[in-house]
Write a protein that binds this DNA or RNA. Structure first.
Lengths: 333, 333
DNA sequence: TGTTCAAATGTAACCGGTTACACAGCGCAC
DNA sequence: GTGCGCTGTGTAACCGGTTACATTTGAACA
């Protein structure tokens, strides 16, 4: 850490002023004459002075670092989310420290401990279920935190995200309105994600609309989706539509269909969830639900900074998400 | 930052020892009797004591934070790389702060400034070309840094990655050995990436082997690859193979072929670069070059920590990468 | 001219750790 | 018994900022 950088006393010496004055101009600069301000800024530039962050953090008791713990970064929804957080925080002079929990509560707790011990001022968590120890630790130290990718107006903790159950219902209704009565739902591991669980719950609540509504759990990857859909195709499951709770799984479904010689949407329909970048490019273009990953990152980031600067309480926030109709769902007549 | 947490003096008071002793047991614990160690650890647990990181950083002049600046996180090669760094650093008690430069030198410089002003002990940069101001800033403060995704034994700065030019040559040779003489190379924006530039240079050096070896620049996305390949297909370019300098572009090529009614590999061959997770799942499976994204993250992470702890100099390191033959390249006879 | 007040700047305590150095106590060799 | 060395612990300076409070200066005003 700037072992060789100039310190505030160097600047003070250089300008013949006191460290207090230097500090004042470096921050906001209240109560400093225009002339000294210039002189100080000039000296700072000449000495290439950068305030020592540790010293500043020690004094002010804030590090301007916010921590995000996410289950994985390899899913592009999370990548976009992180990119948005980084950008939003950066614009406001905050930094992002990242930890990856691999969807494991113990790892998440360990990560939080490390990040707290690193000086994070606030936390951004994924999903709604976390170990009590984690929440306790944050509460005891009064570190603000938000849950993301979920929206739950009843939660005691602020949640910023979307209504997973509601969106799943809409997706299911969409298929129903297109005449589908035999639908397979393909989703990632339930234990790893309360959001997946919420989507399944939402979908299941509408099972009365269908002749069959089956649920299949598979690893959350293209390979997982392909294997799962390939299996049901081979079994002759007879589903007219596959609703995948991630575009990644949907892409796997596409390849499974290609392997099985089934055409989309003529032979089977496929619907996704996420609206990843390539969803409009696949052949046929994928009907999916547009999740505001980037907007969600911006929203939490902005709220967290606001909270840190003004002590405004974090508030739950519902982000808009909607079905994007493209060409992968057939209308059965 | 733990506004309410116990301080080292609280623990000292609780145990009736001095802060020096507490500090000694909390760190490594040299020269402390087994009995006091127990007493201290016990008190720490009871008070839920976490050392204040700012105070520690101020004293030791190290923050145990390493910064990574990457062009984008939305490309899964980078996501994997970041995941590996995070994991490797985390295992050793270090944290990762992330900044995204959007492939822009000015943004990169600003990010580095911010991260330095945040107390990063070391930097991980992408690629080899960076603004002089950035490198100066790091050098002046003696902050160690490494370039990644490249390997250049002649560079004065340590590079850990792979030989982009060499790998491109191998890819081109692979196509040549399969009888392809009319090849199109599809790559992302040159200005954004010296690695892309190196790959192009490598490929171009072998142009004598071909009847035609054309280069096409397109946005680095599925849409970009699809549009680019779609265009040449419509133009009747007559290429027997497309070498895409990213699997993402190759996926676009797949969709362009689907749209144009061309079969892979019967009508055109496609080769990728990256070996992303889904490369084995697409139909037909994609022949590509396996880049050790995860291994690269582990390697830099480990080296950086080693350097920080023992002052060992960072060393350039070549990571193995090789062609994975699958089904997307036809052998022309 | 003396008083009042605001603006500009300085002084020094403080944030919470680390660590060089001092020192006490003890065992051991001579 | 003296001296030496080793172990375990305490003392206090220090890291580099911030900021409450003190001080100086000068203008305004009676």
């Amino acid at each position: 850490m700037s072992r060789l950088g100039a310190s505030i006393r160097d600047v003070a010496r250089e300008t013949g002023l006191s460290t207090a004055t230097i500090s004042r101009v470096v921050n906001g600069g209240t109560r400093v004459s225009e002339e000294t301000r210039k002189r100080v800024l000039d000296a700072c530039a000449r000495l290439d002075y950068l305030p020592n962050p540790a010293a500043r953090a020690l004094s002010t008791r804030r590090s301007k670092v916010v921590a995000a713990i996410i289950p994985t970064i390899e899913h592009s929804v999370f990548a976009k989310f992180i990119a948005a957080i980084e950008r939003t925080l950066g614009l406001r002079g905050y930094s992002l420290v990242l930890a990856i929990s691999n969807s494991d509560e113990a790892e998440e707790l360990a990560a939080a401990r490390k990040l707290l011990g690193m000086g994070a001022d606030a936390f951004i968590l994924s999903g709604q279920t976390h170990s009590g120890a984690l929440l306790n630790m944050l509460a005891k130290r009064q570190v603000p935190y938000a849950h993301t990718s979920v929206w739950d107006p009843d939660s005691t903790c602020p949640t910023v995200g979307y209504d997973n159950a509601g969106l799943a219902k809409e997706a299911v209704k969409h298929l129903h309105s297109h005449g589908h009565r035999n639908v397979a739902i393909v989703h990632g591991p339930l234990v790893e994600s309360d959001r997946t669980q919420a989507r399944c719950d939402g979908a299941r609540s509408l099972h009365g609309l269908f002749d069959t509504l089956d649920f299949f759990e598979t690893p959350l990857s293209v390979a997982g989706g392909k294997a799962c859909v390939g299996r049901t195709l081979a079994d002759g499951g007879g589903y007219s539509a596959y609703l995948c709770f991630s575009d990644v799984l949907a892409l796997g479904a596409y390849f499974a269909c290609a392997d099985a010689g089934k055409r989309i949407p003529q032979d089977v329909s496929v619907m996704g969830f996420d609206n990843l970048d390539w969803a409009a490019e696949v052949v046929p273009p994928l009907t999916t639900i547009d999740l505001p990953a980037f907007g969600m990152g911006e929203a939490v980031g902005a709220q967290i900074v606001e909270c840190l600067e003004t002590n405004a309480p974090l508030q739950s926030q519902l982000l808009p998400a909607r079905i994007i109709q493209r060409g992968s769902v057939a209308r059965l007549t």
